[in-house]
Design a protein around this nucleic acid. Structure first.
Length: 293
DNA sequence: TTACGCGATAATACGAATCG
DNA sequence: CGATTCGTATTATCGCGTAA
């Protein structure tokens, strides 16, 4: 019907802007997919339930089963880490409690800066008044912050010429680390975590990117694990974790500002401990009845 | 880059019936 | 009895979309 080689999102979007019958069909298909996804994956499975509960895989076993390759937590039956905002707005703390969420700002970038000693990254990240995404956008994308953010988020791990130009010292680190991984077939994250990941070298480019990504993503999530331990020891009612964000319950009759400052203080201290040069940032903590609020 | 889960489809497994 | 066929059930794979 559409006379296209595929019906990928990208293909349909290009068709949709062209107008005409095929454009209308492409547009309707895209909207139908989005709606179907929301209903069948995120809403229908929750119908009739009064709570949402998933199971966390804390760490993989020796065969790398049951968890992630970097030490991240994963959630199954049901996945508590990939709900869209529309579902987040439906989830609320139980009676008598509020949901408290602490989010690390650009934690992976800070780990990348700390690990690689890149002076450009360190300078921007160590100053709470500066915004690395914006500065990247100013240098490369005419001030478009969204594109700067995408660059820092994704392009970093491709390790191509664009990264070499923007962050030469980080680029050097990717070369050194990849050489070491090729020698040993393992990527090891920094002290004191020393998480090891086997890298199948036969995987080519994918192996190289996985190798570059591993120490950074792994270090970031282990910092979050330290946070979970400290919060637990402080009596926290932990309920969820989303990679660089931790969530717990606090009494609804408490002082919200104090509750927020308590979590922010713990998280900022841990960040300073493991990221002495790149960890000087404020942690954003929200206290509210609903998740997305 | 790291995950999980859904729908559609393909591949495989298995029991019952049938045939030589 | 063994091989084959048919119909149904289960499992595997692919493509896509959501979170970080």
């Amino acid at each position: 019907l559409l006379d296209t080689p595929d019906t990928n999102k990208e293909t349909l979007m290009a068709l949709a802007v062209g107008g005409g019958d095929r454009g209308i069909l492409a547009d309707l298909t895209l909207r139908w997919r989005k709606a179907t996804k929301a209903l069948t994956t995120y809403f229908y499975p929750l119908r009739g339930q009064d709570r949402k509960t998933g199971l966390f895989n804390i760490t993989p076993n020796e065969d790398m089963e049951g968890g992630t390759g970097t030490g991240r937590l994963s959630s199954e039956r049901t996945n508590m880490q990939n709900d869209p905002p529309a579902v987040q707005r439906c989830l609320r703390a139980p009676e008598g409690y509020l949901l408290r969420r602490g989010d690390y700002p650009q934690i992976e970038l800070r780990c990348a800066a700390e690990i690689s000693d890149d002076p450009t990254m360190l300078a921007a990240l160590s100053d709470p008044d500066r915004d690395l995404h914006q500065e990247t956008a100013d240098r490369l994308f005419d001030g478009d912050r969204a594109r700067g953010k995408v660059f820092n988020f994704k392009e970093l791990y491709i390790g191509g010429p664009a990264v070499k130009a923007a962050y030469p010292r980080f680029y050097e680190w990717t070369r050194e680390h990849w050489a070491e991984v090729q020698r040993t077939s393992y990527s090891v994250s920094p002290e004191p975590f020393l998480h090891r990941r086997f890298i199948p070298l036969m995987a080519g480019e994918h192996a190289r990117m996985a190798a570059i990504n591993h120490p950074i993503q792994s270090m970031a999530v282990y910092i979050c694990k330290v946070i979970m331990v400290e919060l637990f020891q402080a009596g926290s009612l932990l309920v969820n974790q989303v990679h660089d964000e931790v969530q717990d319950y606090v009494p609804a009759d408490g002082n919200r500002d104090l509750q927020a400052r308590e979590m922010a203080g713990i998280m900022e201290a841990v960040m300073q401990k493991y990221l002495p040069r790149a960890g000087g940032a404020k942690v954003d903590v929200k206290v509210s009845k609903y998740w997305e609020d």
